[in-house]
Each structure stands twice: as structure tokens, then as C-alpha cells.
């Protein structure tokens, strides 16, 4: 057995647990590659698939339960914190909220397959006051499906992964540098995406003071309230003259609006 594989076998389950936990807590370190490698090692009889799955599911449940409790305690403020640390500009709270409202706790079954949604769904379940046992049940099933898919992929492609491990082994300590470099590049890329996303948003956004001045000056734009129904139920107010609509129904409300007319959207 090569040294690299020897270490992977010795600390494999702990590594899977740590990696999955970090990813679920919101750190930008992908866990799927680790699960795939663990699956390949399990296929070769060097690791137990059951142990890997138990480690991954336990890490998911612990991390997700922590977010669930924080969501229950601090509500929607937790979601903003997650968006800050996850470096995923695509995980807009509103989109996640809409998905969650549509599917409820069942969305936890596939949440881990969708970047961004995975970390945001548990605190959302807490903020919307779902029961802990039901949450853990759906979250656990989702974790089994997700980790199972990773391990199954590793088992299916074990020969290719074995060759990759062997190639890394030949690199010696450079293999560690290589893996760290890849991780650093992923984090850097996500950070760069995020900076660009926020720069674009800053340029495009209108401030509340600007909007107020436009309304007072008789140059009111078309204002669309695109908050989700549950948020609107909690706070049944709107900006004066705003059109209350769902994303899918915007067409019904803007049919007569000329294309040059300014449109301002707001959510929570």
C-alpha cells in the first residue's frame, strides 16, 4: 500500500467527517471529491462504505442541526450571515426561500445537490418553525442520498481514481501542495465571483433615499414587491404604490409598462 493511500485509509472516515462538516457549516471546501475518493477506496476494500456514509451523514446532521437551531433562534438574520461566509453569490436568500416554500421540508431531500441551497435550507427550516424531529428525518434522508451518490460514484469509477491517487503518490509531498493549491484556487475563484457580483449589485442598485426622492418628485418608477407570501404574511405592509407580485406572475403586471420605464424591485 502506498503512503498516501495508507494515510487516506487510516484517517479516511475522520477526513470525510471533517470535510463534510466544514462544507455544511458554510466553508467553501467541497466535500464531494472526498466522498468520491472514499467510495473508490471502499470499492477496493480499503475502507468501509458504511463507515464513510455514517461519518458523512453524522457530519451533515450535526452541522445542519446547528444552523437549524440558529435559524429558529435568530430567524432571517442567520441567512444573511450564511450568505456572507459561503461565498456563493448564487444563493440569494429569496430564491432559496421560494424553493423552500414550494417544497417545504421535502426540499431537504435534494438540497445538498444544489450549491448554496444546501447551507441555507436548514436555518430556513428553523426560521419557519418546523419541528426538530421532522427536520432531522428529512435532513438525514437527504444526507444519505447525497453522500450515497458520492460514494456510489467513487465505487463506479474506482479504477480511474486509483490511477489518480497513484499519480499523486508519485508527486510525494508535492501532492499535498497540489491539493492545497486546488482548494485555494476554488476559494479564490468563489471570492472573485462574489466581489464581482457585489460590485455589479452596488452599481445597479437604487438606495431607499433615491427611491423616496423619486416618488416625492413625481417621477415614481414602477415598484414591484417580490417578497415571498410567507414573508408578506409576517409583515403585511408595502412601499406605497408598490405592485405585489410573485416572480412567476410579473408578466401579468407589467404588460402595459413601456420598456423605457424604470422598474424597482424589492424583497426583504
Amino acid at each position: 500500500m502506498t503512503t498516501l493511500v495508507h494515510y487516506l485509509v487510516q484517517y479516511g472516515v475522520a477526513l470525510v467527517f471533517l470535510n463534510v462538516f466544514l462544507e455544511q457549516i458554510g466553508a467553501p471546501v467541497p466535500a464531494l471529491p472526498t466522498l468520491i475518493v472514499a467510495g473508490a477506496l471502499a470499492r477496493d476494500g480499503k475502507l468501509s462504505s458504511t463507515h464513510v456514509l455514517v461519518g458523512a451523514v453524522a457530519a451533515c446532521l450535526i452541522a445542519d442541526w446547528l444552523w437549524f437551531v440558529l435559524g429558529r433562534r435568530y430567524g432571517y438574520r442567520v441567512l444573511r450571515t450564511i450568505c456572507r461566509i459561503s461565498l456563493s453569490p448564487d444563493s440569494c436568500v429569496r430564491d432559496t426561500e421560494a424553493n423552500f416554500e414550494r417544497w417545504g421540508l421535502k426540499s431537504l431531500l435534494f438540497a445538498k445537490f444544489i450549491p448554496g441551497f444546501s447551507t441555507v435550507a436548514p436555518p430556513l427550516a428553523g426560521a419557519t418553525r418546523h419541528r426538530t424531529l421532522q427536520f432531522l428525518l428529512y435532513d438525514g434522508l437527504g444526507a444519505i442520498l447525497w453522500a450515497g451518490a458520492g460514494v456510489a460514484a467513487g465505487r463506479a469509477f474506482h479504477r480511474a481514481i486509483d490511477r489518480l491517487l497513484l499519480a499523486l503518490e508519485r508527486l510525494g509531498w508535492w501532492a499535498v501542495v497540489f491539493v492545497i493549491l486546488i482548494l485555494a484556487l476554488i476559494v479564490l475563484f468563489k471570492w472573485w465571483q462574489r466581489i464581482g457580483f457585489y460590485r455589479q449589485l452596488r452599481m445597479a442598485r437604487i438606495t431607499v433615499d433615491e427611491l423616496r426622492a423619486m416618488i416625492d418628485g413625481g417621477q415614481a418608477p414602477v415598484v414591484l414587491d417580490v417578497r415571498t407570501p410567507s414573508v408578506r404574511k409576517r409583515d403585511p405592509r408595502r412601499i406605497p404604490t408598490a405592485i405585489v407580485t410573485e416572480s412567476a406572475e410579473i408578466d401579468l403586471h407589467i404588460g402595459d409598462v413601456p420598456p423605457h420605464k424604470e422598474i424597482v424591485l424589492y424583497c426583504t
Partner: peptide, 30 residues
């Protein structure tokens, strides 16, 4: 989506509804 439909000036409200309320501006019932 709106820009794809030909609308040229589409801007999200910075701070959202919470920002509007925090600024003390008026609201009306939905």
C-alpha cells in the same frame, strides 16, 4: 428576466423592504 423582456432600467432596492422601514419612510397595508 425583466431585462430579457426589453426593460432597460431595472434596479433592485438596496436594503430591501427592511431598509425602507428602517429609514422611517411610510408604508401602506398590502
Amino acid at each position: 428576466m425583466l431585462m430579457e423582456k426589453g426593460f432597460t432600467v431595472v434596479r433592485p432596492l438596496a436594503g430591501g423592504f427592511d431598509g425602507w422601514v428602517e429609514a422611517g419612510y411610510p408604508t401602506e397595508p398590502v
